[in-house]
Each structure stands twice: as structure tokens, then as C-alpha cells.
Design a protein around this nucleic acid. Sequence first.
DNA 1: TTGACATATTCTTATATAAGAATATATAGT
DNA 2: ACTATATATTCTTATATAAGAATATGTCAA
Lengths: 121, 121
Amino acid sequence: MARLATTADVFNAIAEPQRRGIISMLAAGEQSVNDLTEQLTLKQPQVSKHLKVLKEVELVSVRKAGKQRFYSLNASKLKPIHDWVASFEHLWNERFDRLETYLETLQSEPTKGEKDDDDKS
Amino acid sequence: MARLATTADVFNAIAEPQRRGIISMLAAGEQSVNDLTEQLTLKQPQVSKHLKVLKEVELVSVRKAGKQRFYSLNASKLKPIHDWVASFEHLWNERFDRLETYLETLQSEPTKGEKDDDDKS
DNA sequence: TTGACATATTCTTATATAAGAATATATAGT
DNA sequence: ACTATATATTCTTATATAAGAATATGTCAA
């Protein structure tokens, strides 16, 4: 009963800014630990530790090549977050206001190309 | 140097599942603390504590009415998360494949010359 | 005022970091 | 084997919860 582990799920894993930084860097393609370390303001051990967390929630994968480890992003693991947040998007995005209005008018006003005999009010 | 506070930013605030539950409930409209408590598997004090965190990051607002407090969602505060995750959407959503190719072309190899005729493999 | 109801706060306890320092492990080259 | 390089792990320290229990605060009504 303390905070959930950072490895509990993707939501917790990305709460740490440094890890989001790593994810952003990996979006450009795979990077070695050294590559990441050079661009971040972190020592190598910390980078490895953050990568370990990201690996545990499967946000990243590793490829071994000699003494290097190339980490790459499994972006699809971010989809649950995307979907969760997107479910609220209509509450702030006016683009979705029109969609809502459109969906509502579908119930009373037929559109071209689609027959609509469902007229609940 | 421990974990960031849950109130440090929205990313940390929503890492807690119960708080996401509260947010989801508030998406339907404002709710009193009691309303929330009844639907969650939490005691009232915990609900109040979670609401306090959400309020500190401005994800929710309160309206006082008699002895009740009605909390409502400020969904737009989720936009930073949405935007951040959406910036990776092209990496998993094939709908964005063409956009991805275009963006990669735009930012390929800053050191290797800026003109790049789509010869990324 | 007293009482009931609604919500917030305080304190405790178990637990989990994140960074830094030091060290360990692994691999390649000579 | 020895050395340099690349990465991972261990230990320490400061800090921050989240839930539970108990209590405090606030508000309305009789």
C-alpha cells in the first residue's frame, strides 16, 4: 500500500520525465545505452536503470551487438494510454464537438448516402 | 531524489488507477464525494485524498453546495498527455504510415545533408 | 445548541523509488 | 592474460506515497 511500482503498468512507467525523454529519443530509432547517456543529463547507471523499467513494461526491446545493447521503442505499448486519454478528448476538443453534434443530428436528420429510419428524439 | 510527487504533473497524478477511475466517473458530469465513494471501493477519506491530488494538478474543480462538494473534470488538462502519446501514434498506427515516411524524410540525418530523396530503407 | 450528515485532515505503517557511488559482468582487441 | 570499453547491478540515502484509523471541520435542520 504505497505507490504502485513503476513497473506496474505503462502509466506508472512513463510518469518519470527521464523515461519519457528516453522514449522520445528512441522514437527516432534504436540507440545504444551510450547514445542515450550522451544526450541525457544522466549517468550511465541511471540510464540502464530507467531502461530496465521500460523493458519490464515492454515499452522497449533490446538487441545485442557486441558489447553494445541497442534499445528500440515498442510504441504500440503506449496505445492503452492513448486510448484512455482519447476517450476524454471530446471534452476539450471542439473538433469533437462537431462530431458529437453530427452524431446527434444523425438521429433526427438523415444524411446523404445513408438511410436513417431510426428516429428517436 | 525519490519519485516525483503525484502532484508534480498530470502524468504522475494519473498513474494511480483509482484516480483514473475517478476521472472516468467525472467524465459523465460532476459528482459529489459521496457519489464517488459509493461507486468506488474506497473509503471516503481516500476519495477525498485522491481528489486533493487531482485538484492540485487542476484536473478537477470543486463547486460547493451546502455540505456537499461537487467535483468536475477539467478534461483539457489531459491534453499534454494526449499530445505526447499522439506524437508516437504513427509508430503503431498504420493509418499514419504515409505521414511517418514524410516526417522521417524531413528530419533524416541533420549531419549528412538536408536534401534527402526518400532513400530511407 | 444539539445532532446528523458531508467532507477534509492528521498520524501511522508498509513500501517503493531515483540518483549517486562503487562494483560487477561481458565482450572485443592485442 | 591483460586492457579498454560497454552495460548492468548493488548499496546507500533522502523522500514520497496509499490505505486505514481516528479525528477534525463544516453545514444544515430542528
